[in-house]
Simulated scan of single mutants.
Amino acid sequence: MDKGVTSMHTPSGKAKFSMNKEKRKCTYIEVTTPSELMKFLTEEFPAKSRKDIKSLLAHRQISVDNEVITQFNHPLIKGQQVVVNWAKVLIEEQPQGLNIVLEDDYIIIIEKQAGLLSIATDTEREQTAYSILSEHVKKRDPKNKIFILHRLDRETSGVMMFAKSEKIQQIMQTSWKEAVLERTYVVVVEGTVGKEQGTITSWLKENKAFIMYSSRTPNDGQKAITHYKVLKKNKHYSLLEVKLETGRKNQIRVHMKDIGHSVIGDKKYGATKHPIARLGLHARVLAFKHPITGEEVRYETDIPQEFLNLFKQ
C-alpha cells in the first residue's frame, strides 16, 4: 500500500475509506451496500449528529461520484464513491430559533422552530425568522438583504424559503404555482381519522375576529384544496401527511376542523387537547424549480419526535 494512503473499516463494516497526504481534508468512502445518503453517513460517522451531517449537505460538502449532493435521502448504489470535504466547514454559528439547511447565491432554506413568527405584523414586532435571518446575512456584508417568499404560522415548525434579492423574490412569486412542485406537511389531529385518505375542498373566508372559516358555496371566498393521508393512528390521535394544492391562510387548520379532527394544540380552531405544548403542525417537504438553474430542489425534514412519541405502543 502507498505510504501516503491509509484505509480502515468503518464501524458499520459496510465501506472502506482512504485519505492521502494531498487530500487528507477529505474522506473518501466506497459504497458497498445500497442505502440512502443520510443513513449511510450516520453509520459511517457515528460521532456526528444528524444536524452536523445536514449542515455538511446544506453547505455542499458532500459529493457522490463527483456530483455535489444536498438531499439527505439521495439513493446510493454499490460501487459509488462518497466524498466528504471537511475543509469547507463553515464556522458561522446557526442563528438561534432557526436552522439554515440550504443556501446559495439566490435563496436560503431554513427550518423554523415552533413559536417563532415568520415576519413582523402590525401588532407584533418581536423577533421573527425574517429579522433573525436578516441580521445573520448582514454579518457577512451590511448590504445583504433577504426577501420573504411565503410564511408559516407562528406555532408551525418546518421548512421556509427566502430570496436573497428582490429580483429572485419577484421571479418566484410571479411563477409560484408552477415553480413550487410540492409542499407537504405532517399534522397530528385529535381522534381517530376513519378515512385513510381524502381531499378537502372549500372556499375560505375571514371573519371580523380574523378567524378563517369554510364556505361550501363555490367562489364564496378563496378556493382551498387539501389532500391528506393517514400515516399512524391510535384511539387518541392521528398522524396525517398533508399536501397543499393551494396555500391559503390557516388552510390546514381550518380543513382539519372541517373533518372533525382539529390539530392538537389548536384552540383557535376547536382543539381541546394540548399534549405536546405546541401546535401539531410541521412543514416537512418543500420542492421547487430553482429560479436561476431551473433544476428541481427538494428538502425534506424529519417528522418531529414529539409527534411520533404520541404513537408509541
Rank of each mutant, 00 (worst) to 15 (best):
L76Q: 02
L76C: 02
L76T: 03
K78W: 07
G79P: 01
G79H: 00
V82H: 05
V83W: 00
V83F: 03
W86V: 08
A87F: 11
A87R: 12
V89R: 12
I91L: 12
I91A: 13
E93R: 12
P95C: 07
P95T: 06
Q96T: 15
G97M: 09
E103Q: 13
Y106L: 09
Y106W: 12
I109V: 03
E111Y: 08
E111L: 09
E111P: 11
K112E: 05
A114T: 12
L116Y: 09
L116C: 00
L117F: 14
S118N: 00
I119L: 11
I119N: 03
I119T: 07
A120W: 06
T123C: 09
R125T: 15
Q127A: 14
Q127V: 14
Q127Y: 07
Y130K: 13
S131K: 09
I132Q: 07
L133M: 01
E135H: 10
V137M: 11
K138P: 02
K138I: 11
K138F: 06
K138N: 01
K143E: 14
K143L: 10
N144D: 05
N144L: 01
F147Y: 12
F147R: 01
H150G: 09
R151K: 06
L152S: 02
L152E: 06
E155Q: 12
T156G: 10
S157P: 02
A163R: 03
A163H: 07
K164S: 07
K164E: 11
E166H: 08
E166W: 08
E166Y: 12
I168V: 14
Q169F: 06
Q169S: 07
I171K: 09
I171M: 10
I171R: 10
M172E: 03
Q173I: 03
Q173V: 01
Q173C: 06
Q173M: 15
T174A: 10
T174D: 04
S175D: 15
E178I: 07
A179S: 13
V180L: 05
E182Y: 09
R183E: 01
R183Q: 10
T184L: 10
T184R: 15
V186N: 15
V186Q: 10
V188M: 03
V188Q: 13
V193G: 07
V193Q: 05
K195I: 14
E196H: 11
Q197G: 02
Q197I: 00
T199F: 05
T199P: 12
T201A: 12
T201F: 03
S202K: 00
L204N: 04
